[in-house]
């Protein structure tokens, strides 16, 4: 398996389709925070968002990573099956998996043939026919909501949240399970009014099993430095326990389960 260098996303996708492969950043065989049970987590390469606090900025570029064939991934997952128990399985995270959604559909189909549970950890930025096909074979969606307010969403990610909300709406229409994930960044995503707005937006969703609050941390800052990028949230500290508690209390008014990740 050789690393093909590409100049644009068009080429990238074309190459990937030819190769029946995913562009992978890294893997974690003992994933315990990205879906239920013990999971094989594949972090794929490439993301449309450019989140200010991204903990894995090295996954943003669509050029990096290594190609891993679907069969390689399935073989790995099969080998790991004894560890999955009743709940575990495979999670595709990133980067942003939807950039490789056609290939992921193939992968999830293959995993289902082996009786392996599939989870997609996504920003929901692309909602087209291919995404909808992928969601058919996705047992659990973990949808990352960066912000409910579009201006703030722009500020955090450089892009809009319209598609993400559409994505959620579509998943709800399929009646299949979904978790929401919300990164809590002091001064950026902890405004009370917007937390209420977030809750209000989703309060009638039946597909949402829980919302996970992910406290902002700076563990990825050194990667920004390595990339030669400026990290703009240098001044922001992880949220205090009291603040987490407050946010949790607000969200509990709207969601069945609120967990702090």
């Amino acid at each position: 398996m050789k690393n093909t260098s590409t100049t644009g996303s068009g080429n990238l996708i074309a190459n990937l389709q030819k190769a029946e492969a995913l562009r992978v950043h890294s893997i974690e065989t003992f994933g315990t925070h990205d879906g239920p049970g013990i999971r094989l987590v594949i972090f794929v390469q490439g993301c449309q968002f450019h989140c200010l606090y991204c903990a894995n900025p090295d996954t943003i570029s669509i050029d990096g990573g290594t190609l891993m064939s679907l069969d390689q991934i399935v073989a790995k997952a099969k080998k790991q099956k004894p560890f999955f128990g009743k709940n575990g399985g495979v999670t595709i995270s990133g980067g942003e998996p939807l950039l490789q959604r056609a290939m992921l559909k193939e992968l999830f189909n293959k995993l289902h043939k082996e009786g392996i549970h599939t989870t997609l950890d996504t920003n929901g930025k692309v909602i087209d026919k291919q995404t909808k096909d992928l969601l058919e074979t996705t047992d659990l969606v973990m949808l990352d909501i960066k912000h409910i307010n579009n201006d703030w969403h722009h500020k955090i990610t450089r892009l809009s949240n319209v598609n993400t909300l559409k994505f959620a709406e579509y998943r709800e229409s399929t009646g299949k399970p979904m978790w929401l994930r919300y990164v809590l960044v002091p001064g950026y995503s902890d405004q009370e009014e917007y937390l209420h707005q977030l809750g209000d937006h989703f309060k009638n969703y039946k597909s949402i099993e829980k919302i996970e609050i992910l406290p902002y941390h700076k563990l990825g800052v050194h990667k920004w430095e390595a990339l030669g990028w400026k990290y703009e949230l240098e001044h922001v500290e992880s949220p205090e326990i009291t603040s987490l508690k407050k946010v949790s209390d607000i969200l509990q008014q709207y969601f069945r389960r609120v967990e702090v990740g």
Binding site: F30, T32, H33, Q80, P82, G85, N87, E259
Partner: peptide, 22 residues
Amino acid sequence: SLGSSREDQIENLSRLLDGYFE
């Protein structure tokens, strides 16, 4: 690293042992 909740940690440790020994 074993899991977020204590319940998950206990469950995941059991599955880890099951898997390793299998």
